[in-house]
């Protein structure tokens, strides 16, 4: 079995007296898709922010296997080192596209910016790669000079995916990437995420409250409640034969379509 790409140990975060994230530990191997599910307030977005080092934990560690093969505690990296990692080897697709994109910059610029972060300066190459990626996320080449403020919700999410994947990251975090979209738009986006993550062998952590999204995309699932992971395992086993009372409640509360 391959060595873990990401190793999370004992992550804990309090907001005053409230435990937002309590002693969460897991490993993620290359190419593995982990879904974190739970209701609003269960701590799943806090966990994602802790992993992305946007929040500092009260205790616990997040370690990542760098390109040189060494597993490093992210807290030990310099601020610049962490930023460089997030800009190149990691992606973060956010629920609110306005937080994941630069809304006044053209679609091509949004994709190209991450390449420039890697040191690419050749305009023609940047534009060619941006065009290639817009095509892969099914955005018409004619829209390359339009800013995402003129895009629909589904297109913005697809542009976020292109912006994140252009640098060939190994780990992508996704926070409710499909919520708030029309069902048909959701299906298209899910299919795109499923296909690209498999093709590129991406490791993905996807936070969602939608169990159908978790079933379609993930290999493993972690169910969170009140900051704790209360059940974890093979996605279809947890959803079809849930063990914990709360997971049974979650699963039985879904309307079958």
């Amino acid at each position: 079995m391959s060595e873990p790409l990401l190793q999370v140990r004992g992550l804990t975060k309090r907001y005053g007296a409230r435990l937002a994230c309590a002693d969460v530990s897991f490993d993620l191997v290359p190419g593995e898709v982990l879904a974190i599910v739970g209701e609003s307030g269960s701590g799943k977005s806090t966990l994602l922010s802790l992993i992305a080092t946007e929040l500092a934990p009260d205790s616990g560690t997040v370690s990542y296997r760098m390109r040189d093969g060494a597993l490093r505690d992210l807290a030990g990296l310099s601020e610049a080192g962490r930023r460089a990692l997030m800009r190149t080897d990691w992606g973060f697709v956010r629920q609110d596209a306005t937080k994941g994109l630069r809304m006044a910059v053209s679609a091509g610029g949004n994709v190209g910016e991450r390449l420039m972060g890697l040191g690419e300066r050749h305009y023609g190459r940047i534009r060619a790669q941006a065009l290639d990626w817009l095509g892969r996320v099914e955005i018409d080449a004619g829209r390359i000079d339009d800013p995402p403020s003129q895009f629909s919700g589904g297109m913005r999410q697809r542009l976020q995916i292109a912006r994140n994947l252009v640098t060939a990251p190994r780990l992508v975090l996704m926070d409710e990437p499909t919520s708030g979209l029309d069902v048909s738009v959701q299906a298209r986006l899910l299919d795109l995420i499923r296909r690209l993550s498999a093709e590129l062998g991406l490791a993905v952590i996807i936070v969602t409250h939608d169990l159908a999204v978790a079933r379609l995309l993930s290999h493993r699932i972690a169910v969170m409640r009140a900051g704790r992971v209360i059940e974890t395992g093979l996605t279809d086993r947890v959803l079809d034969d849930p063990e914990h009372a709360y997971t049974q409640l979650l699963v039985s509360s879904v309307l079958a379509a």
Partner: peptide, 27 residues
């Protein structure tokens, strides 16, 4: 078995055919 081992078994060893097709949109 660890979930990853079960997934590897499904890829290489075990085929499961139920009465119902779980449809993947658009494919």
């Amino acid at each position: 078995a660890d979930p990853r081992v079960v997934l590897a078994l499904r890829a290489r060893v075990i085929a499961y055919v139920s009465q119902f097709l779980r449809v993947i949109p658009r494919v």
